[in-house]
């Protein structure tokens, strides 16, 4: 069963929702009008662009190009995180990129190669959407971990310095802080496993069902996605927390921020 096509006219009806949000912003003086309009323009532009690019990508048969595109997506996600996390003292962009790259690449390849068993493993129709879902969802986990570790180090400065004065290495002085930061990054994806199917129906599953796929097949895919999100947020949060923690200290075990 093919899905019902949405015409461009019908798509524009969706702008009613934007007008509602914009009206609310004007009425309540929220000052969000510009962001709402800019966000709408970007949503249309980015998704259409991605759609047309995907048509080309799906025809490609080169692992190198697919991985390059995936790397570009991760880089963009890392830049987005930099816009969100307000920290000037420590250069964390490259570590963020590295931890996302390692975690997402590993998880996506395991899923396409071992779980779904796609031939070849980089088959773009699977690799790009699955990888994109990991990036989109666990990007916020990395941002949460980063925000948490920076704010905790600043808040618990006296305690960290007490440990350092007593002869602790920075690892000993910040053990709790790193644990809390990793935990904060992991909890949302664990909570999502509790609520899925009851509180919310995930976009991928509903999308497949609307597109006419067998609901049971869609559910299996969704389960794989939920599991890989837990894995990727765990790996990503752990790597970023450890790297960034180390960057906050000098070689002489002094706090930098």
């Amino acid at each position: 069963m093919d899905p019902i096509e949405i015409s461009y006219g019908q798509l524009l009806i969706g702008l009613v929702f934007i007008a509602t949000a914009g009206g609310a912003s004007l009425f309540l003086k929220l000052g969000l009008e510009r962001d709402i309009i800019w966000g709408t323009v970007r949503t249309f532009a980015q998704l259409f662009l991605m759609g047309y690019i995907l048509v080309y990508i799906f025809r490609m048969d080169s692992a190198a190009i697919i991985l390059l595109i995936f790397t570009g997506m991760i880089l963009f996600a890392a830049l987005t995180i930099r816009g969100r996390v307000q920290e000037k003292g420590v250069p964390y962009l490259i570590p963020t990129f590295i931890s996302m790259f390692m975690s997402y690449m590993l998880v996506t390849i395991v899923v396409t190669y071992f779980v779904i068993n796609v031939e070849p493993w980089y088959e773009p129709r699977y690799f790009i959407p699955l990888g994109g879902m990991i990036i989109g969802n666990s990007m916020s986990a990395i941002a949460i971990s980063l925000e948490r570790i920076f704010s905790d180090i600043r808040k618990r400065r006296d305690e960290i310095e007490l440990y350092l004065c007593l002869g602790a290495r920075h690892g000993e002085a910040t053990g709790d802080i790193v644990r809390e930061s990793v935990k904060a990054g992991m909890i949302p994806s664990i909570n999502a496993m509790m609520a899925v199917g009851i509180v919310f129906l995930p976009g991928m599953m509903t999308g497949q069902i609307i597109a006419g796929a067998d609901p049971v097949t869609s559910i299996k895919y969704q389960i794989v996605v939920m599991l890989m999100l837990v894995g990727s947020t765990a790996i990503g949060s752990i790597i970023i927390a450890f790297i960034v923690r180390n960057l906050c200290f000098t070689k002489a075990e002094q706090l930098k921020i």
Binding site: A168, A252, E253
Partner: peptide, 14 residues
């Protein structure tokens, strides 16, 4: 630095 700090101990004000 670790041994130094245990030799020269700084007792914080707070």
């Amino acid at each position: 630095v670790v041994e130094l700090r245990r030799d020269i101990y700084y007792l914080q004000q707070a």
